[in-house]
Design a protein around this nucleic acid. Structure first.
Length: 1016
RNA sequence: GGGGCCGUAGCUUAGAUUGGUUAGAGCACCCGGCUGAUAACCGGGAGGUCGUCGGUCCAAAUCCGAUCGGCCCCA
């Protein structure tokens, strides 16, 4: 206990020792078990895809997770499971493998064989897991890596199958079309992320064509940039709230939205005007009469119609646009697909077999020939290209399975209100807005590596959804060898249809990987096949945290799945973190080359420093990363604690003091202990409310109070010769405060805290100890000390401003408010020492003000005329002043002076100096008498002797011989304060001294000091 | 293009829900002190038009509107 420390703080060395110790003693596992059987706190790890090394943002979220797991453990909660998780499926993994194989599209994968491809994916997933686990451990992120949940395991997938079957039973899992960005060359849809990588600026023809209204000699003006979609036209859309004009344009009657008429047609004559709603249901003639359209060919209303470009009348080809498809669903029309999967026209027409770009050109010619074209123009706009093969993307209908979020939107929205979001504006802002859109979740993917969709269909469109492996196998007619829940094995399983006896085959899709990670809150238990009770005890999950981008990713997936399956929210508290930016406040990026490797940073500045950087400021505020700032901050905080421990422990060890409760002696001790309790209570509150940055601020403040105030003022007590009660009391308080700080800091800086905790207590681990308990405290004690601090600060300021250096004692200091009398008395020793004053007391300001009465020149000028100066002098005489003060009137030069002729000013007594910049007024008596003067000189001498001792490299226990020669008053000071001077400097007076000497100038007085070390 | 968050001293930040003394800390800086925490410790000082503009109000960092900059999400 109270072990020695190296003299200098070396955080890297500490971290090294501590992590070796944890490893050796298996402290992490011990901490997992320490609260077994106690109340639970639940957590789920948002599983990363370990197909690349972790970056600093990952380190930040993991540090934040760890912070609260450690805190809750210290607060006595049992966190089980407390395990890592790995997200294994999905496109990122596939792309990684494609890169390795040097292949680029689905066809090549199929050629290689799905079996081989998926085997490579499976391998690739774990390539970086080792690095991730290593970095996470290095960061001190304590979760069980050996028991990690793995989304590609059959058990995990089986839990998802159960969930999907439940959704199917509720009618929430169904097949539909989705209009997706699609690369005709790769034969695949692209994710939003991929699309956003490939936008380019292109010049395209856009055309205006005319659609004839059935039975009338009027036309709709329609604009499009994709002429190849015109053969598939099924509807026209207008905005019901816009106003449309019928104009005579070159002899033809044409409808166009009012605001665009001038821009598009330039010259025309207005014939009529109608609101958009007027046209809804109006039939029109097919522009290109080739496709047989059984439904449609009438006008619909659409809010998506704008006046920004075009004609305000929008052509709808439901197969090739998301808005268009939504219209089709609403109108319950048929879907006509006029293009094949390779992006070639498939419709029996003059353009069959042409790619869509060429077809567009031909269609423009065709429309021109038929006189249906009003106008052609070239416009520049950004359009998505395939990021892999640079092919122009098209929007294309892809068969897809959906989760019907829109059908139960109310639930999803309602349960969100039960979630405590940090920061809270996410709930109704970014997250709430997204939920309000209530979009269906497109679940299936046209890919290979993922959780297989558990759906088998037969030729009669009957559907079988197995909710477990067993249910599938029980119904199967064929199962391949080495069967597993991945493609291609799972595809080979054949099932007999219960309804029509025909053979059922699997829908060939894997599902969205967000469904994997979003199922973690039950699938990590293999629920409901196992661990039902454990799941129930831990649900909803108490705490999760990830970065902001997960609002529409993991946070969304968890919330939706839980709402639909369990009719409740998945999590209770969620901390949403912002990103780590570079030192200029920009996003770190590969291209700028300013991405930083968290492992390297930890090597350079230490883990605790990096963690402290993350915990500064609210988690939901972007942070600019700088190594220098991190180091500085940690050196300041941890270094101060380290030095405080050194000061305290060095003395306590000399006295053989061992940590134990002692009776409190001084008011300073009582204050420190109350401050500590106050801090504990505030830190606990802030941690419980998920405001870690405020908790850290509380701890910082306490460290300053300990170091800057308590320890500094307790040094005299520490240095007293005997082990007095006062000494024991202050040891106890210093220990107690340091120990509390160490424990409170343990979740923030686990390495440093562990180190210091072991030094303080000789106990096994701070992470097996309890968080300091909240106790009642006396806030009046704290307020009193704040007043004392204020007085000391103010006193020093006044001394400094008036050239009254602290070394010279002053006679008295007055606090000009009598109500502080009791406090001044209580802390008079402390204040006297800090301000070097002989006396301190509180008194009414009035008794230190002198009133001066002056003649009011305006009124008395008329009375005295040119004698005014003489009258002023006469009135200023003290007997006249006194008389006036007593009776309010006095006779001056034969005239009577009354209140009306007098101005009264108040002056501070000349003997005092003050400072009126603060609320609390303090007066310092600046008068010096001889004794004070000599005492000041004595202190000046001591200071110079000490300085010479230091220059001679003496140890503070070394004794010296001393000889003083100099000015008379210096000699007088020396003899008057001889005992003080000699004892302060470990000196003996000697008439001849052989060591070093030096001549000093003390306020103009010459002093020669000679010192010599006494031989031991 | 739509939505959201942020902007306080050179740096890191508190204060915004509930408008109200002189916008509070820490680091760095300058001046000084201490010399038994010394690679430490302490005091004082300077440093802020609270991004900008406008509005509401007796009163705005705080509420409202616009605008600029940074970041994120969606299209």
């Amino acid at each position: 206990m109270l072990d020695e420390l190296p003299q200098y703080f070396d955080s890297l060395q500490i971290e090294k020792e501590v992590s070796e110790y944890w490893e050796r003693e298996n402290i992490m596992q011990l901490s997992f078990a320490v609260n077994r059987g106690k109340r639970r706190f639940s957590f789920v790890e948002g599983p990363p895809t370990a197909n690349g090394p972790p970056h600093i943002g990952h380190a930040e979220t993991r540090a934040m997770k760890d912070l609260f797991l450690r805190y809750k453990t210290m607060k006595g909660f049992y966190i089980d499971p407390r395990i890592a998780g790995w997200d294994c499926h999905g496109l990122p993994v596939e792309i990684e493998v494609e890169k390795k194989l040097g292949i680029k599209n689905k066809a090549e994968i199929e050629k290689l064989g799905v079996s081989k491809f998926n085997a490579l994916c499976k391998e690739s997933v774990f390539e970086y897991v080792k690095i991730w686990a290593e970095a996470s451990k290095r960061l001190g992120f304590w979760v069980d890596y050996d028991r990690a949940y793995i989304t590609m395991k059959d058990e995990y997938i089986e839990s998802e199958w159960w969930a999907l079957k439940e959704l199917y039973k509720k009618g929430l899992l169904f097949k539909d079309f989705r209009i997706s960005p699609y690369c005709p060359r790769c034969g695949t849809t692209l994710s939003a992320h991929e699309v956003s990588q490939g936008y380019k600026e292109v010049d395209d023809f856009s055309i205006y064509v005319k659609f004839k209204i059935t039975g009338k000699d009027e036309y709709f003006l329609v604009w499009t940039t994709t002429p190849w979609t015109l053969p598939a036209n099924e509807y026209l859309a207008v905005n019901p709230n816009f106003n449309y004009l019928l104009v005579n344009y070159k002899g033809e009657k044409i409808w166009v939205v009012e605001e665009r008429a001038k821009i598009v047609l330039k010259k025309y004559e207005i014939l009529d005007s109608k609101p958009g709603s007027f046209f809804v249901g109006t039939k029109y003639e097919q522009l290109i009469p080739i496709l047989r359209v059984n439904t449609g060919l009438y006008v619909v209303a659409g809010d998506f119609v704008t006046k920004e470009d075009g004609s305000g009348i929008v052509h709808q080809a439901p197969a090739f646009g998301a808005d268009d498809y939504a219209v089709l669903k609403k109108e319950k029309g048929e879907l006509y697909v006029t293009v094949d999967e390779a992006g070639k026209i498939s419709l029996e027409s003059p353009w069959k077999g042409l790619d869509v770009q060429t077809a567009s050109d031909r269609i423009i010619e065709y429309l021109n020939e038929r006189g249906q074209m009003i106008k052609t123009e070239k416009t520049s706009h950004s359009y998505p290209f395939c990021w892999r093969c640079d092919t122009r993307l098209i929007f294309y209908p892809v068969e897809s399975w959906f989760i019907g979020v829109s059908m139960v939107k109310e639930k999803v929205v309602e349960y969100n209100q039960r979630v405590n979001w940090k920061p809270d504006y996410i709930r109704d802002g970014r997250f709430g807005n997204f939920l309000d859109e209530g979009k269906d979740w497109a679940l299936s993917r046209n890919r290979f590596w993922g959780t297989p969709l558990p759906v088998w269909t037969c030729k009669n469109n009957h559907v079988f959804v197995p909710g477990s492996k067993k249910e599938l196998l029980d119904n199967s007619t064929y199962v391949p060898e080495n069967f597993e829940l991945h493609r291609p094995k799972v595809d080979e399983v054949k099932v007999k249809c219960q309804e029509c006896d025909s053979e059922m085959i699997r829908e060939p899709y894997p599902i969205d990987t967000w469904f994997d990670s979003g199922s973690a809150f039950f699938a990590q238990y293999h629920y409901p096949f196992e661990n039902q009770e454990l799941f129930n005890e831990n649900s909803p999950v108490d705490f999760i945290t990830e970065a902001m981008d997960q609002t529409r990713g993991w946070f969304y997936a968890l919330h939706v799945i839980s709402s639909l399956l369990f009719d409740r929210n998945a999590y209770k508290n969620v901390v949403v973190m912002e990103f780590v930016l570079n030192s200029k406040g920009e996003k770190m990026s590969k291209s700028r080359g300013d991405q930083v490797d968290p492992l390297q940073i930890m090597d350079r500045i230490g883990t605790d420093s990096l963690r402290l950087f993350f915990f500064q400021g609210p988690p939901w505020k972007p942070k600019r990363f700088s190594e220098e700032v991190s180091v500085e901050f940690s050196r300041k905080l941890l270094g101060t604690i380290y030095n405080s421990y050194l000061l305290f422990s060095t003395n306590a060890r000399l006295d053989n003091w061992r940590p134990k409760k002692e009776k409190l002696v001084s008011d300073l001790d009582k204050w420190m202990l109350n401050r500590t309790k106050e801090c504990i209570s505030s830190v606990t509150k802030h941690m419980d409310e998920y405001d870690p940055h405020l908790a850290l601020d509380d701890i910082k403040d306490l460290v300053l109070d300990l170091s800057q105030w308590y320890l500094r003022l307790s040094r005299d007590t520490f240095w007293s010769k005997d082990v007095t009660d006062a000494k024991k009391s202050s040891y106890f308080v210093a220990y107690e405060t340091l120990n509390s700080i160490t424990k409170m800091l343990a979740p923030f800086t686990p390495f440093f805290s562990e180190y210091l905790f072991m030094k303080l207590n000789g106990a096994k681990s701070v992470h097996l100890s309890e968080f300091p308990a909240e106790e009642e405290f006396d806030s009046s004690v704290i307020e009193e000390m704040n007043l004392v601090k204020e007085i000391v600060e103010s006193g020093r300021r006044i001394r400094q401003k008036n050239g009254l250096i602290l070394r010279r004692p002053v006679k008295e200091i007055v606090v000009t408010d009598p109500k502080y009398g009791r406090v001044m008395k209580k802390f008079s020793g402390l204040i006297k020492k800090e301000l070097n004053t002989k006396d301190i007391f509180a008194a009414d300001l009035k008794s230190y003000l002198r009133q001066e009465h002056l003649l009011d020149k305006k009124s008395t000028g008329r009375i005295f005329g040119k004698d005014l100066a003489a009258a002023e002098a006469e009135f200023g005489r003290s007997e006249n002043q006194l008389e006036f003060k007593k009776s309010g009137r006095v006779t001056v030069l034969g005239k009577t002076i009354t209140n009306e002729n007098v101005d009264t000013k108040e002056h501070l007594d000349e003997r005092f100096v003050s400072d009126d910049t603060s609320d609390l007024r303090i007066l310092i008596n600046k008068e010096f008498d001889k004794k004070l003067y000599l005492e000041g000189l004595a202190r000046e001498m001591v200071r110079r002797i000490q300085s010479m001792r230091k220059d001679a490299n003496m140890d503070y226990t070394d004794r010296i011989y001393l000889r003083i020669e100099g000015d008379e008053s210096l000699m007088e000071a020396f003899s008057s304060f001889k005992e003080y001077i000699l004892s302060s400097t470990q000196a003996e007076e000697k008439s001849s001294v052989g060591g070093s000497d030096k001549v000093w100038d003390i306020s103009g007085l010459e002093l020669k000091i000679s010192i010599e070390k006494v031989a031991p």
